[in-house]
């Protein structure tokens, strides 16, 4: 599954990238599954992985780079140790998600889209988590929470450890 915290991310390992690509290359349309697997293992897609994957799939580096850069999920750099995604789509707007974001930004000292200086928390917007009858919604290290407010979300962040 997708990486949600970066704490367990593996250090760079070219052989592992090639092995992931080899293992999945016979799927129909293997590139997204490979990129997900690399993103999960390392917490992001290192630029050095691009030519390795391209080589296994017989694609150009540009083709692989184009896919990596198209999708929001594929990180180009590691995230903080905890990732908070706050839903900023309409149903959550109707329930005041902007206030939730503002309170969390203020308390953590980080703007939406950024990572705290101590690399502890990355705060990101997400557009719909499918929890629209229990808005505002947020995903904290991959776990969905409903009926959020700033205080509850901050308590979850504090409870997430260092």
């Amino acid at each position: 599954m997708r990486s949600t915290t970066n704490g367990a991310a593996a250090p760079w390992d070219a052989a592992a990238v090639v092995m992931i690509a080899q293992e999945l290359k016979d799927l129909d349309g293997p590139l997204l599954p490979i990129l997900h697997a690399v993103n999960d293992r390392f917490g992001f897609i290192d630029e050095r992985a691009v030519p390795l994957i391209a080589d296994v799939l017989n694609l150009t580096r540009a083709e692989v780079h184009g896919v990596v850069s198209f999708y929001h999920d594929f990180r180009r750099a590691p995230a903080g140790r905890h990732v908070i995604k706050v839903c900023c789509a309409e149903a959550c707007q109707a329930m005041g998600c902007e206030r939730v974001v503002a309170e969390v930004e203020e308390e953590l000292g980080v703007a939406l889209g950024g990572t705290t200086p101590d690399n502890r928390v990355t705060l990101e917007p997400v557009y719909c988590l499918g929890n629209c009858a229990l808005s505002p919604a947020a995903l904290v290290d991959g776990k969905l929470h409903g009926r959020m407010d700033g205080a509850r979300l901050l308590a979850l962040v504090r409870g997430a450890g260092r």
């Binding site: 349309g29 799939l57 184009g66 999708y71």
Partner: peptide, 24 residues
Amino acid sequence: RLGAGAYICGEETSLLESLEGRRG
């Protein structure tokens, strides 16, 4: 199969591109 965070992939032809391993 898992998408990768792109609203446009709900459009049917973008979804097919994505499944094939390309930009949506």
